[in-house]
Computed example of a mutant assay.
Amino acid sequence: MGEVGGGDGAAMRRAVRRLSLGAATEGEWAEAAGEVGRLARSDERTKRALPELGVVPPLVSMLADAGAGAGARLAAARALLELARGTHRNKVHIVKAGLLKKLPRLMDLSGSHDLALLLLSVSSLANTDFPLSTADLLPFLVATLTPTDVPADTRLACLAALRNLSAKLEHVRAVVTSGAVRALLAPSLLERTEAVAEAALGVLADVAAASAAGRREMAEDEEAPRALVEAMARHESAGCQEDATYLVMALAHGGGGGGRALLRRMRPLGAVQALLEVSLLGSPLARSRAAKILQWFKDDGQDRIRAHSGPRMEAAAPPACHGNDGGADGTRACRSAVDRIVKQSLDMNMRSIMRRATASVDMTNAKQLVASSSSKSLPC
């Protein structure tokens, strides 16, 4: 361990003694934890030296001790966060001190932004060789996302931690079985700010890309159709539309029977209209995906397109028909003829819309190609 300056060295020793021997009051606990946080912020050498002096275990114990008082516990969370920032070894020290095992005792602090940031920092260990256990971490993150009164910045930190875990193949199964999919599709989450909705859809997209079980669970979730249609209707967020259209494609193609059922459940919720708007107004990537999904809707449900998009001929009075047949047979023949005309008209409209959407995507690609080509120097 490298030498630390005299003033900070003395402060470190005092902080270590106070944490190791215990404090008499909540204020003293908070002051000792605050001093550790200040020292950790002062310079990188001090930050690396503090865990070697044994400050991490008492801070973790203070955080989990309900009798220490809210002020002292939050001060401990902030101190641990300062120690964890940018230092792989310190994060390992914090996990080995039992932070994740103590999470069930921290549910009363689940709304704390500092605690959420600490868990986000620790979750980055999932992208390293360190064997990070998610058995206690995932339930805490999911439980934090569920209440409606959790601040948006705390939700974002928890979603970022879930993103770290879902990006690692070995943790995806645990993410699916933790109930995260249901929590991420809940209206209470996706109807919030653009940033929260985009982060939630990003986690779902990661899970859908890596897990067949995750795709099946999403496709069968009762909230999925409405959640995806509403996400595609977020015209202010290209990220939401891109992730939502990706999810529809992934679930329809890889969600088994549930994927096909998902498309059928989405149709009466306005999926076709939302996709048409995305295909004309969305980002190039979202437009391309929307055009593909529209083709699936067209190929898979001609009768339903007619039933939902056109007039309901069964409820209308039959038009007058003049022919040799009369009575009921003539009426049925007349209705069939009108139905065929309506179907042909709708098919023509759909093909026209599809051509416009495809042309829009092709034009964007052509513009990008011209722009990239024009940036190259011409041969002399």
Rank of each mutant, 00 (worst) to 15 (best):
P51Y: 02
P51Q: 05
E52I: 01
R73P: 09
R48M: 03
R38G: 13
E31T: 08
R85N: 08
L53A: 14
G9D: 10
G6L: 11
R18C: 12
E35F: 01
A68N: 07
A64P: 08
L21Q: 15
A64Y: 08
R38A: 12
V60E: 03
R48W: 03
A40Q: 08
M12Y: 04
A66K: 13
R14L: 14
G5Q: 13
G6Y: 07
A64R: 05
G27W: 00
A24C: 02
L63H: 10
A10G: 12
P51K: 02
A76F: 10
V55E: 03
G37E: 02
A77R: 04
A66Y: 09
V36K: 01
A30P: 12
A64S: 13
L81Q: 08
G54A: 13
A24N: 01
D65A: 12
A11F: 03
L74T: 08
P57A: 08
A77D: 04
A32N: 02
D65N: 14
V56P: 05
L53N: 11
E3F: 15
R38H: 06
W29Q: 01
A77P: 10
A66D: 12
L19I: 11
A32M: 08
R89I: 06
A23E: 13
G86M: 09
A32V: 04
R17E: 15
R38E: 11
G27D: 11
L59M: 09
K91L: 09
R78L: 09
A10V: 15
K47E: 09
V36W: 01
V56G: 03
T46W: 11
A79W: 02
G86R: 05
A66S: 12
G34M: 00
G34S: 07
K47S: 05
A33P: 08
P51S: 04
V60S: 01
G71H: 10
A70W: 13
S20Q: 13
A79H: 04
